[in-house]
Design a protein around this nucleic acid. Structure first.
Lengths: 199, 199
DNA sequence: CGATTCTTTGAAAACAGTCAATCTGTGTGG
DNA sequence: CCACACAGATTGACTGTTTTCAAAGAATCG
């Protein structure tokens, strides 16, 4: 019987060390602030209408965050495969009910951290704080790019951009979810893929 | 001769007092950190390729922030009329060249603040810090909404949303800029308006 | 006033959506 | 192991929305 070689925290440690330096004490402190969790495909981390309690780091698997609009249609806002974070920061810090659903689309290993604990890590570990700030900025920049691309690019070009953003996901997530992320119908994704395959 | 009644800082003071409490000393300190500036319509606050130096609070007038894509087309990411902020935070804090142009579309009164001064205000004035954090969160939430609406809503519905976001701007900014913001052609905006006017 | 730029309007083409039928793969129960 | 049912994916035909191109009509600024 072979033991699982990498714990969820090993993934987070590698992720953090790639971004800043941490002493062993800092790393141990960080570890105590997160709690591991697993989610089977289809299980929810959070539902719209409830108050978000935790932010999640995805060590293995893949989650999605989505909203349901006035007409009942799902719109995927974010995929979170390995080494991505997913949370509704507004709900977390304001205590107001969230507009977002977050569920697992594969069996997933997570590390959860609640808002006060995250505050504590940010305050006590300078390298973590600066990395966190940079991460927020990257996300804002990425959101602006997605806005520009979604108002200016064709479905075909938006699909190519999706492939760049999530290189591993094209074959991992159902086509209907790719469609929901791109804002097109599943039929359109099918036709885009056929066109790309023919070339 | 009637004197101008409200200075740019009066507008900022009213804006801040509506969001948190500030002592007179705090308010004076804040005042020393900002410098007033004016921009005539068409003048630039910032050009893509240069490093952003200041964030701007718009006391009067209106600015726009936009990118130019690979095909040379302009895409307006944000309008900033009175009491809005506009900046490229990534460039400001990273020191890397910006991707954004920011210019005035009306003669405008601004208050500028550079990154170190802003840091100082955030550190020394708790009410300002919490307001700033809330503002960032609201912006992120608004960006997510705009992503969802731009991938799921028709041009007509996006125009209605623009009217809600910027109630005063429909008659103030040229139609071609509204089109650039919505991601449609000026002709489409003309047709949407005709349809709305007929009802 | 004249020149330039923006806006309106029309017609045709491109793009993506809808609806419906068929195909494929997967898992379940016989 | 096979047959069936089910869900997801593919394909075609048709519809609707938005773009493109072109021309004519306002508005704006020097």
């Amino acid at each position: 019987m072979v033991k699982e070689s990498a714990s969820a925290f090993d993934v987070l440690r590698a992720y953090l060390r790639a971004r800043a330096s941490f002493s062993d004490q800092e790393m141990d402190f960080i570890r105590t602030m997160f709690r591991p969790a697993t989610l089977l495909a289809g299980e929810f981390l959070q539902r719209a209408g409830t108050v978000a309690k935790d932010a999640a780091f995805v060590a293995k698997g893949c989650l999605r965050s989505y909203v349901i609009d006035a007409k009942g249609k799902e719109h995927i806002v974010l995929f979170a495969p390995e080494t991505w974070w997913v949370a509704d920061n507004v709900s977390l810090t304001s205590g107001r009910p969230s507009d977002y659903f977050i569920d697992a689309i594969e069996d997933s290993d997570l590390l959860l951290i609640d808002s006060p604990s995250h505050e504590a890590v940010v305050e006590k570990v300078p390298g973590y704080a600066s990395g966190h700030r940079k991460g927020l900025q990257r996300r804002t920049a990425a959101q602006n790019e997605r806005i520009v691309s979604s108002i200016s690019a064709s479905a075909h070009d938006r699909y190519l951009r999706f492939l760049e953003t999530y290189p591993s996901l094209a074959t991992r997530v159902p086509q209907s979810m790719v469609a929901s992320y791109l804002g097109v119908t599943p039929e359109t994704v099918s036709r885009i893929r056929r066109k790309l395959a023919r070339k």
